[in-house]
């Protein structure tokens, strides 16, 4: 089996130009879904009627269906919806000129909401109820208790799961090519179709994903060490870190 090394190197750098798009989908999905997921988690922990049922059904559906189906459903649904909306608002935008990355933002945000809310829920539940009581007993408000005491502690147990979710999200964005988004996979795929250099292209993609995921994992490891220090270190040692 001969690999066309020259082609592989060229395509590698070509595919690298898709990294910003891949990362932007990941970042937007995480940032958009974080606050929503938090309130979804809270609604389930505190058994808020109706909201809780809706959230549970939503999480179950997203968890129960493949991302590729979610993409296909949204992609066959959203353009015509958006078109109808834009027409009714009589804006002067042609929906079909819009950058398809918008669809990727929407699909992956919807998907991430569900996963993140599950992570937040179980992380919040790991914090002992006494922590909340102690905070209230010294006169903090519920919001203060959450932002200063509960969430920082919950983050420690949530981080490894958030890392996993991020890795899976990055891997999942490789499916955005189905929506003609120009990210890493689609760029290399298109390059491959000119000269049938499929294996070279896919190996390039693989290397890029390995690099991306390794960097993400290293970053998370760093953060984990930082915010988890209270579990293992005494104060003087913690200051030195």
């Amino acid at each position: 089996m001969d690999l066309n090394i020259r082609y592989m190197i060229d395509t590698f750098f070509l595919a690298l130009t898709g990294v910003p798009v891949t990362l932007s989908i990941t970042a937007v999905a995480l940032l958009v879904s974080a606050p929503i997921a938090f309130f979804m988690a809270i609604s389930r922990i505190y058994n808020i009627r109706i909201v809780k049922q809706v959230v549970s059904a939503y999480v179950s559906f997203i968890r129960g269906t493949p991302v590729v189906l979610q993409i296909l459903i949204i992609y066959s649904l959203l353009p015509s919806w958006l078109n109808a909306m834009i027409k009714s608002l009589s804006w002067d935008i042609n929906i079909f000129d819009m950058n398809p990355v918008i669809y990727a933002y929407i699909v992956f945000s919807l998907n991430t909401c569900a996963g993140l809310s599950e992570i937040f829920r179980s992380a919040l539940l790991t914090v002992n109820k006494g922590q909340l009581e102690a905070a209230l007993s010294i006169g903090m408000s519920a919001v203060q208790a959450y932002t200063r005491i509960i969430i920082p502690q919950a983050m420690v147990s949530a981080l490894p799961n958030i890392c996993n979710l991020t890795i899976n999200l990055i891997k999942g964005t490789s499916l955005a090519f189905m929506m003609t988004v120009k990210e890493v996979t689609s760029i290399a795929k298109i390059a491959a179709s000119y000269g049938y250099n499929y294996i070279e292209s896919y190996l390039d993609i693989l290397i890029i994903y390995i690099l991306l995921c390794s960097v993400i994992q290293a970053l998370f490891a760093l953060v984990e060490k930082r915010i988890g220090s209270y579990k293992t270190l005494t104060g003087s040692a913690a200051k030195a870190v």
């Binding site: 890795i167 891997k171 490789s174 499929y198 896919y202 994903y209």
Partner: peptide, 12 residues
């Protein structure tokens, strides 16, 4: 494997 998107491995 942890870093490999399933679709990429499938094509490879």
């Amino acid at each position: 494997m942890r870093c490999t998107p399933p679709i990429v491995l499938l094509f490879i």
